[in-house]
């Protein structure tokens, strides 16, 4: 382990607090938002279409279809304290690591098959 890694390790969330997420999961991310003095937690629900980076720089992107069929994507830093917790709503069967192709699909075509074990 080099010195950079040893410093990074300190900033990671404890293993129990790191959600086990995969591309294709439908998740609800609880984001802490600071508005002036007040702080509140806002959920953001959608599909994980990308997980990238590692260690302190690991991020994941959640895509959801907002009103009028407009796609909204948000990228979260996995180890950021602003990401309060991640709730997994559903897991899907996907065959690739990045689901960018979902951006070009709409409606029924953009569905993912649920993962059954």
């Amino acid at each position: 382990m080099n010195l950079v890694q040893s410093l990074e390790r300190q900033m990671l969330k404890p293993e129990t607090k790191v959600p086990e997420i995969h591309p294709g999961d439908i998740v609800r991310v609880f984001v802490r938002i600071v508005e002036g003095q007040r702080e509140r937690v806002q959920p953001f629900q959608g599909t994980i279409i990308r997980i990238r980076g590692g260690s302190v720089n690991e991020t994941f992107t959640v895509r959801r279809i907002a009103s009028h069929g407009i796609g909204v994507e948000r990228t979260f830093l996995l180890h950021s304290p602003r990401v309060e917790r991640v709730e997994i709503v559903r897991r899907s069967k996907v065959r690739r690591a990045k689901l960018h192709y979902l951006r070009d699909l709409r409606g029924k075509a953009a569905r993912l098959k649920e993962l059954r074990k």
């Binding site: 410093l7 990074e8 900033m11 802490r32 260690s55 302190v56 720089n57 830093l77 304290p81 602003r82």
Partner: peptide, 9 residues
């Protein structure tokens, strides 16, 4: 280089 996450995110 790396990055540091502060307590406020």
């Amino acid at each position: 280089m790396t990055q540091v996450i502060k307590e406020n995110g």
